[in-house]
Design a protein around this nucleic acid. Sequence first.
RNA 1: GGAGAGAUGGCCGAGUGGUCGAAGGCGCACGCCUGGAAAGCGUGUAUCCCAUGUGAAAUGGGAUCGAGGGUUCGAAUCCCUCUUUCUCCGCCA
Length: 425
Amino acid sequence: MLTIKLIQEQTDLVAERLRIKNFEATSILNEILQLDDLRRSIQSRMDNQLAELNSLSKQIGQFYREGKTSEAEAAKEKTAEFKEQGRILKEQLTQTENQIQELLVQLPNLPHELVPAGKTADDNLLIRSGGIIPTADPERKAHWDLLQSSKLIDFELGNKLTGAGFPVYKKEAARLQRALINFFLDQGIKAGYTEVQPPILVNQDSAYGTGQLPDKEGQMYHAEADGLYLIPTAEVPVTNIFRDEILEAADLPLRYIAYTPCFRREAGSWGSHVRGLNRLHQFDKVEIVQVRHPQNSYQGLDEMVNYVESLVSLLNLPYRIIRLCGGDMSFTSAMTYDFEVWAAGQGRWLEVSSVSNFESFQANRLKLRFKEKGDKRTTLAHTLNGSALALPRIVAAILENNQKGNEIMIPEILHPYTGFDRISL
RNA sequence: GGAGAGAUGGCCGAGUGGUCGAAGGCGCACGCCUGGAAAGCGUGUAUCCCAUGUGAAAUGGGAUCGAGGGUUCGAAUCCCUCUUUCUCCGCCA
């Protein structure tokens, strides 16, 4: 959520930046500014009424203590008017605040100035790439064909248990996945991240804090009886650790890492290109989160990009790093880098990580602030997060890129984790 | 799930209708003291909003004692609902 202060001070800049995200904000911005003026004047008047009421109340107390009962009774008569006015103004204030809030949550985050303009993925900017794309080979299979007979990843069984998009991993596939999770966590800890295991169901406040609500309500599974949501990413519980917190500047940056299952309804986003592991309703992911001083949050973003790059490199996966254009970026992000790895069996790039700086956009909703020691003023912190990494597509890429005849070679770095160096089909 | 007791500032803890944003203690910051430190002494130490105002400040007002509602001229204090913690019982991975 953008701050009203920013909208007031830089109205034109805000409108201009939001156009990069193909969002025409002018009328909303003006409406907000108008409502905010109204809000202040209401607040002023209300405060005055309440101040009168408070001072009368004090007087009444004084009268009673002095035994001046009739004066006290007389003063009581006078309170009714202030009370009523105060009540009416309070109602107006709440209503106005709600209206402002409704408009504010419609505004996406401002893109950073380096974000390219554009509407679709075609306008994204290739930053760099690495690894070697295996030579095309007609023998090479997509992972769903590759596993067809072995059923190491059993989609039909998952369908029986739950439904489409909930596969069952078996034997080496299950162990490979577990190995990757441990590998990712260990790497993260080595890089200075603190491991946490958060709940995977969150309440409304948390879903709101990171922006899943109200923007993407339909994308989360909702346990209605308890008012809880299954998390679509560990970003939600981990970032919400800091909701309503005032941190010490000296404690920043904070780096957290968490493995969780993730749940996404993916309503309306299924098609022929999302077969197999490419898109699931439940998948595993290791997520990294940073909380930073605004001065160095982009340093943090670079650090996270380099870190994720190290992971795909260690796994010997051909990758490319892309800076998303305004139109392809998420609502909450100021700058996002996507990581894609080459899946040789399908002959296409798969997105395996998305690393973003949200600047103060999430922090504003979360009320996540920090304070310099000895300073009175609080400042919104910057939050960042990234996948490090999302499991299924990494598994898909490993399977597809490393197939040799009837075998799949496991990247060497994982051998200590898997306990085997190949999967025989 | 049943019964009971709680939820107060960074922490501990007092406060059962007015002078309470809240005693006291601890912690922290600054100052005095000291050759330096400790002890001691003094001062300060929540967040948000509004107004005036500024380089930063400051001053005045309003709100907040788990959350929401109610009673009252006035609520941390009384009533209701919810959340949550602890103890006992039941159940249980």
